[in-house]
Nucleic acid binder design. Structure first.
Length: 789
DNA sequence: CCCTGGCCGCTTTTT
DNA sequence: GCGGCCAGGG
């Protein structure tokens, strides 16, 4: 090794001196395929960010002997940097670099918007403005970008609509009707699942039908698949899986497009590689075929999405697929205590199908794992609530706590107890913002304005608000549309020209005229202004007030929240803001993306959604055979390993305290069952555990809860928790502001009103208020955010 | 055309 | 235990 090379290496090592040896190995290994096996909490995002920074600043300098450009001045500069830490001059940095790359030559792919956003943020923090030129995005949004640009090669316009699962479901039901497939015989769920798997594996409808042979069931699914794709294309729409598979098809069918991107991207990095499916594997393989510079980061032990088509094979056989691949293992954990890691290691060691990795840490040993056995699910929730309140008394924050469960349905008991105990919480999952009916309706309006070919979303809104246009009429119009080869919207706009539609022609054309007016307006107005016009012209809010008894208030608030989302989008994108841009952004958005970390509240979510997150204290309720592992997994022993990986993921979310809870009896699907403690709990060495149970502790009034069965209480709390944070309204012991009959109050949406009655309900008060503008409403005092006037 | 009452069937779900 | 879905009556 020449003196120059040696000097340069030392400088680079110092540049990245905050990394450990293995991390630096991953950062400096720039050329050729690289597999980084990154255990939980091993700092993989940091490695990705620094690896990219190195590629841009120094290229492959670390492993290069090339030193021609280095001058004596550079050498002096480098020695000073090593000796006394003076800054490297930009000239020296440039001279040290060996074929560095431009930011736009790098593509970094993640699975979630959250991960992509964090990556982007850390890249711009480190690299400044130019960091923003890196393609850091999710698989889906990167593919949407490819397809907006080149989708015409596959027969799509650049304005295609992205269908979510609800749209897909409606479309499939449509197909089933046409093909006379009874949902009872073959459900839309089964078919869509099967289609999703087919797309993941890049199997076209034709190929599917060929492979189906004489298997009746498969032939039916194949026919449904075929029709479904036909209808999607006609509607200029793609579902989530299409985004990936169509991109791969585009690349395979148009070598010029592929070669354009192969030349553009010199380096490709993929995060969470263990969760990729076959189509995603093909995508990155194709893109990196020319450069061979593919770096994948993943952890086979954290593969928990097999049920959605992820193949752990991709990571297990990376070295076979890419024979020159270099492998780096990151096993040092910076997150959890040694005890938590020992427990997680012991559990995952029971899996046979793995690369084998043992996490270690320099962190202290920490407290033992708490295992608490409650009498039933109420005792379970009570215990968790008490532990949290105790912790908060000892200076913990609510936001230090996370409760991770196997199924969303486990959350309801916890919610009830949290509301009762005054614990603020935020919950992920369940009904998401963009899945609410009123939000979907408004988005459907915007989609149709953007793309009138979209029949599914057109059908959704044609009679919403009610316009006396029934299913029969719509079906008739759809039939005509199919017959004459026009879109449904065209037929409706010219309803009077068709004999069968004569009777409802007036209503249909009135609706079409409204939409056409909005379409014309959309050309001149910004998305936000268009949305306002839309609300005004459809009278949708008025409609909600008239038809929804209890939920009108929530729904109107949601509609207004959407308005502020659109305005926010406009602010973020300035001149570039377009309607289709906004629609794309929200169609690829999820709940986790909106998780506001600054709010001091306990977080509740499924173990699946918790991947990639970490909390000081974690509760894992429902560690019982039949719940976790679930029934399904117990019947199919091959699924047990995936459940165990999920347990591993869940346990390694905890930094300091981990509490596992099980209940001896539990109400499930309406009947009480008795479950054994989970095998995963038994796999933790006894010496790491501190056991308690409700029975031995003989707590006062175990499992007794105020019967808060009132639906409004619950939904109101969820509402408040989700959108506005807990509004600090549920701090324990906080005296409730008394609202009395006769008081005049102000509400954000409803304006001023007078309280008619106040009746205590659970821990809250139900108020009946006569508003000046909107009449009498019933609201819960804690969540309505009323102000005394 | 629209509302209501009874029946079924239930994991997880980054997009 | 709850919500989604269809059938039948208004």
């Amino acid at each position: 090794m020449s003196e120059w090379t040696d000097l340069r290496r030392k400088v680079l090592e110092k540049e990245f001196n905050r990394m450990n040896d293995r991390q630096r190995e991953a950062i400096f290994w720039t050329e050729g395929p690289l597999l980084v096996l990154a255990g939980a909490g091993s700092g993989k995002t940091t490695v990705l960010v620094n690896r990219i920074a190195n590629l841009i600043r120094y290229g492959s300098a670390y492993h290069s002997e090339e030193a021609d450009r280095l001058t004596a001045e550079d050498a002096a500069n480098m020695r000073a940097y090593l000796a006394i830490g003076t800054e490297l001059s930009p000239e020296t940095q440039r001279d040290m670099a060996v074929s560095p790359c431009e930011p736009w030559q790098i593509m970094a792919i993640t699975f979630t918007n959250k991960a992509a956003g964090e990556l982007k943020k850390r890249l711009t923090d480190l690299l400044g403005e130019s960091g923003g030129e890196i393609w850091a995005s999710t698989f889906h949004s990167a593919c949407a970008r490819f397809l907006r640009q080149f989708g015409d090669r596959l027969g799509y316009t650049s304005r295609f609509t992205i269908y979510d699962t609800d749209d897909s479901k409606r479309l499939m039901k449509e197909c089933q009707r046409t093909l006379r497939i009874e949902d009872k015989v073959l459900s839309h769920k089964t078919i869509l699942n099967e289609i999703s798997r087919a797309k993941d594996s890049l199997i076209t409808p034709q190929a599917y039908l060929e492979a189906a042979g004489h298997d009746n069931r498969l032939v039916l699914i194949g026919q449904a698949y075929s029709l479904y794709q036909e209808k999607l294309k006609k509607a200029d729409a793609m579902d989530f899986d299409d985004l990936i598979s169509n991109t791969v098809h585009l690349f395979l069918e148009c070598p010029d497009v592929l070669s354009y991107f192969q030349n553009k991207f010199r380096y490709i990095l993929v995060d969470e590689y263990q969760d990729t499916n076959h189509a995603q594997y093909m995508l990155v393989k194709l893109l990196s075929q020319k450069s061979q510079n593919l770096c994948v980061v993943g952890d086979d032990d954290q593969s928990i999405y097999k049920f959605r088509g992820a193949t752990i094979e991709n990571i297990l056989s990376f070295e076979k697929t890419f024979p020159r691949a270099h492998v780096v293992r990151l096993e040092q954990n910076y997150r959890s205590t040694q005890t938590i890691l020992d427990a997680a290691n012991a559990v995952i060691a029971n899996n046979a199908e793995r690369k084998g990795k043992t996490l270690w840490t320099e962190n202290p040993k920490g407290d033992p794992i708490s295992v608490y056995t409650a009498a039933n699910e109420l005792g379970e929730a009570d215990y968790i609530a008490k532990q949290i309140l105790d912790g908060v008394e000892k200076n913990r924050k609510f936001s230090d706590y996370a409760v991770l469960y196997r199924m969303n349905s486990q959350s309801s008991t916890l919610e009830r107890i949290f509301v009762k105990s005054g614990i603020p919480y935020r919950m992920l999952g369940g009904l998401r913002f963009y899945e609410r009916r009123e939000i979907r309706d408004m988005i459907a309006y915007l989609s149709v304005i953007n793309n009138p070919e979209d029949e599914i979303r057109l059908r959704r809104i044609i009679n919403q608000p009610k316009r006396s246009i029934g299913d029969k009429t719509i079906a008739q119009a759809a039939e005509i549309a199919a017959g004459v080869g026009e879109s449904l919207f065209e037929v409706i706009a010219h309803a009077d020209e068709f004999e069968q539609l004569k009777r409802s022609a007036g209503k249909l054309q009135q609706f079409a005229a409204l939409m056409q007016e909005l379409m014309r307006a959309s050309e001149a107005l910004s998305p936000g202004d268009l949305y306002e016009l839309l609300l005004e012209r459809t009278n949708y809010q008025q409609y909600l007030r008239e038809t929804e008894e209890e939920t009108a208030q929530d729904r109107i608030e949601n509609i207004q929240e959407l308005a502020s989302n659109i305005r926010q989008y406009e602010m973020d994108n300035g001149e570039e803001a377009t309607l289709s841009g906004f629609l794309e952004e929200i169609s690829l958005m999820t709940d986790v993306d909106n998780l506001d970390e600054s709010v001091d509240a306990v977080v509740m979510m499924t173990m699946h959604s918790a991947k990639g997150l970490e909390y000081p204290c974690v509760f894992l309720p429902g560690f019982e055979e039949g719940i976790f592992p679930g029934m399904q997994a117990i019947y199919h022993p091959s699924d047990i390993e995936e459940e165990r990986r999920l347990a591993y993921v869940a346990m390694t979310r905890a930094r300091e305290e981990l509490t596992i809870v099980n209940a001896e009896h539990r109400m499930i699907f309406g009947s009480t069952t008795r479950n054994k403690i989970s095998r995963f709990c038994m796999e933790i060495p006894e010496e790491l555990i501190d056991r308690h149970s409700e029975r031995e502790w003989k707590k006062p009034e175990p499992g007794t809860v105020l019967p808060i069965s009132n639906r409004e209480t619950r939904s109101a709390s969820v509402q408040a928790a989700r959108h506005f944070g807990p509004a600090a309204s549920t701090k324990p012991e906080k005296p409730k502001t008394a609202f009395l009959p006769g008081d005049t109050v102000h509400h954000k949406t409803f304006g001023d009103g007078m309280i008619l009655s106040a009746s205590p309900m659970g821990n809250d008060t139900l108020l009946e208020i006569a508003f000046e503008r909107v009449g009498t409403k019933k609201l819960m005092a804690n969540f309505a955010r009323l102000q005394k006037v």
